[in-house]
């Protein structure tokens, strides 16, 4: 008893260090372990508070952008009108191609095995800690969301779910270094792996030097791994470097989604054809 009293501090310190080391070792060994109750609870509680804090900032930001800071709006409007006319023309051509493709597909009896059900969610928080590029969304396992599901926005792929709680999920963004997406350069059908570089853009890896890739080419999902549906826009090629040693060229890609302005996303939940609602 006297020993315990005498060495109380040392014993307490040892207990705390041992517990923390066990916790760390367990999570290193089991990185895909299911989230514990406490972890889920903390995430559930943190998001509403973050929302309350961020709401006035978001409102001020909106007022500034939509009503006050309107420099260059007229020029942008003209440019968008021109672009709109051009895109309408292209759309008509592509629609023709799409319909033709559908007809041919029907002829060949090729059918999609997987369809997706979309769940809309709002971005509630951003992880600004520079180690990971993640955002929190306000939908979770209660809505059927699971880790690994793809997340998209109107302008393209956002990332994938890496962690879920009951009503909150964490999305790993495309620009994070842990993110790897099987992709395709649309023009030349060149395959590669799109990896984030945490500085707001991505790198298309494993593209052989002999393949033709041009600046401005669209990069889309290949759908090979089955995580992301096929033909979703990932970004556009911004730089191609062929010099240097090695077998592959360096292809830099600007994501189609502006992650700093991300507000609403869709989580795509795969459904087998028979199970479709």
């Amino acid at each position: 008893m006297l020993f315990l009293k005498k060495h109380r501090s040392a014993i307490l310190a040892t207990i705390m260090v041992v517990i923390s080391l066990i916790m760390l070792s367990y999570n290193i060994v089991n990185p895909s372990a299911e989230n514990g109750f406490i972890r889920k609870l903390v995430l559930e509680l943190a998001v509403p508070i973050e929302n309350i804090v961020n709401a006035p900032v978001r409102a001020l930001n909106n007022i500034w952008k939509r009503y006050l800071f309107l420099v260059g709006l007229e020029n942008e409007n003209r440019r968008l009108l021109r672009q709109n006319a051009l895109l309408t023309q292209q759309l008509i051509q592509h629609q023709e191609g799409y319909l033709e493709g559908l007809r041919l597909k029907k002829l060949l009896s090729l059918k999609n095995q997987v369809s997706y059900k979309a769940v809309a969610a709002s971005v509630t928080g951003r992880n600004r800690k520079s180690l990971h590029q993640t955002v929190m969304i306000n939908k979770g396992s209660a809505q059927g969301i699971k880790a690994g599901m793809p997340v998209v926005a109107d302008s393209g792929v956002v990332g994938r779910i890496i962690e879920t709680s009951w009503h909150v999920s964490r999305v790993l963004l495309l620009i994070d270094e842990n993110s790897n997406v099987d992709s395709l350069v649309q023009g030349g059908r060149v395959q590669g792996i799109l990896q984030g570089n945490s500085q707001g853009c991505c790198v298309l890896k494993y593209v052989p030097k002999m393949e033709e890739v041009h600046v401005g080419d669209a990069v889309i999902t290949s759908g090979i791994c089955g995580v992301f549906p096929k033909s979703w826009l990932l970004g556009t090629v911004s730089r191609v470097t062929r010099g240097g040693d090695g077998l592959f060229q360096k292809v830099e890609v600007v994501p189609s989604v502006d992650f700093s302005k991300l507000e609403e996303v869709l989580v795509l939940m795969p459904q087998e054809k028979g199970a479709r609602e």
């Binding site: 080391l21 916790m23 760390l24 972890r39 903390v42 943190a46 180690l131 990971h132 962690e163 964490r170």
Partner: peptide
């Protein structure tokens, strides 16, 4: 938890810094 890092990493770090 909030940062989404490996569980226990900052616990070990903070305890080390504290001691």
């Amino acid at each position: 938890i909030i940062m989404g890092t490996v569980m226990g990493l900052y616990v070990v770090l903070y305890l080390s810094v504290f001691f």
